[in-house]
Simulated scan of single mutants.
Amino acid sequence: MDEAERTALAELLGMDRYPTATCTLQVARLETRLAEMGAPDARTVTETIVGPFTDPVADRRDRDTLWAWLRGHPVVAAEPALLGWAADTERAGLVGGSVPATRALLEQALAVIAALPAEATPLSVFAGDIVGDTHALDGTRRLAGLVLRALAALYDVPPPKDAAERRDLWERAGIACDALSTTVLVAGFRPRTSGPLAETLRTWADAGQAAVITLRQLQEPPAPGLGDATVWITENPAVLAVALRDLGTACPPMVCSSGWPNSAVIRLLRTLRDAGARLRYHGDFDGEGLRIAAYLMSKVDAEPWRMSTADYLTALDGTAALPDPGRITEAPWDPDLAAALRTHRAAVAEELVADTLMADLGQR
């Protein structure tokens, strides 16, 4: 305490000498004196001067509860690549030191992530639809930065550093992308619906050829439904090419994600799912392949197709000089798969198991 504060305290308590710069007071004595003066209690007076008291134990418990909620959120659990983003977010700390404010922001971010990829929607329109604020995802706004860092974690790319990189990442997630150049490769499609798209797809299927569908075509009714058919999804076009070579006009319905599924892929698969189709997915056995598989399964409810630990180990048998699988994240559909890739440090490209996949397609 400075001299003025020591004088004030001595007068308040009726001391016969000034207290030292640092002293200890009996709360009961202070409460008695404040009551005699008709003043509020000691806690109220102190909080008026220095601000509200906090409970460190309760604060820590609230923070731990918040971060546990984030790590266990269904969006994060479905795509384990987001666990790193969740850890980074925790290290960044609370928004304004507030647990409720931080949770509110995270709930918005998770809602945005769950709604992606968009379907060539302008960013402001998308933001308005999802969080009720057309500017919430603008530029360097806090929510935009949080979502973009999550997307960077999903796609395993560095967080964007400037406006151009932010635009590229948003476009990769289907925001304001070109609905004509955003396409999906398919084969064996014989829709039960009518219209130009359905007729075109049936024509190419009857010719034993693949077809390309644009996002713009998928946005126009009627949707190309296949009823309760099983639709086989591959990550790589080469596998679809092998299916057409081996099966020709007998090729079953197939969709190729061509790596990370874009808005057209997701739109088509959701349409097929909603019409009753069963979706089965196969991709590469490497770090990127696991992330793509988790992403696609979470977005369209696809089932894994020969994507188990046993399938991976079988594919390794007798195969030498395989490339490193890169950064590995967990596989929600098989808790042992990521560990197996870490142990063997060997990636198995989808093309290497094409014969096994063709056997499944031929026996459908």
Rank of each mutant, 00 (worst) to 15 (best):
D156K: 06
A164P: 01
R141A: 01
D178S: 08
D133E: 03
R103I: 06
P160M: 05
T65S: 15
D156Y: 01
R61A: 15
A77E: 03
A111N: 01
E107A: 07
V157D: 05
I175F: 09
L151G: 11
R172F: 01
V125T: 15
L180S: 04
R103K: 14
A77Q: 01
A86T: 08
A114T: 09
D162A: 05
L94K: 06
L154Q: 06
R63A: 08
T48L: 13
A104K: 06
A81H: 00
A86Y: 03
L146F: 05
A81P: 01
V112S: 13
I175M: 10
L180V: 05
A104T: 08
R167Q: 14
D64F: 12
F126G: 00
Q108H: 10
P80L: 01
A153I: 02
S124L: 09
D162N: 12
L123Y: 05
L66R: 13
L83M: 15
W85I: 15
D138F: 03
P100A: 13
A164H: 05
A144H: 00
T44I: 06
A144N: 02
R172A: 08
H135C: 04
V75P: 00
D133Y: 02
A120W: 00
D178G: 11
T44K: 07
D138I: 02
F126M: 00
A153E: 04
E47L: 00
A153R: 06
A111V: 01
G96N: 15
A87T: 12
A104L: 03
P100E: 08
A111W: 04
P158N: 13
E90F: 05
V50C: 09
L83N: 09
A111F: 05
W170R: 10
D59W: 08
F53R: 11
A144Y: 00
T89N: 04
R61C: 11
G72V: 03
S98P: 01
G96A: 14
I130M: 05
L169S: 10
L154S: 03
P56H: 05
E47Y: 00
L123T: 03
A109W: 10
T134A: 04
T44Y: 04
V75W: 00
A136H: 05
D162T: 04
K161M: 14
A86S: 11
T65R: 15
I175T: 03
D178H: 12
D59L: 12
G139Q: 13
R63W: 01
A120F: 04
L154V: 14
L154K: 03
A150D: 08
T140G: 02
P159E: 13
A78Q: 04
R166C: 15
D156W: 02
P160A: 12
R60P: 01
T44G: 02
W67A: 09
L146R: 10
G51A: 07
A68N: 10
A92P: 09
P159G: 04
A153C: 09
G132A: 02
G96W: 14
E79W: 01
L70I: 02
A144T: 00
A109Y: 07
A152V: 02
G97F: 08
P74V: 11
L154Y: 08
A86W: 00
L83C: 13
R172S: 04
W85G: 13
R71I: 06
D138G: 09
F53K: 07
R141L: 00
Q108V: 07
L82P: 01
G174P: 02
L169R: 02
L105A: 05
A176Q: 10
G139L: 14
D156H: 13
L180N: 06
R71E: 10
R103Y: 11
E107G: 03
L110M: 07
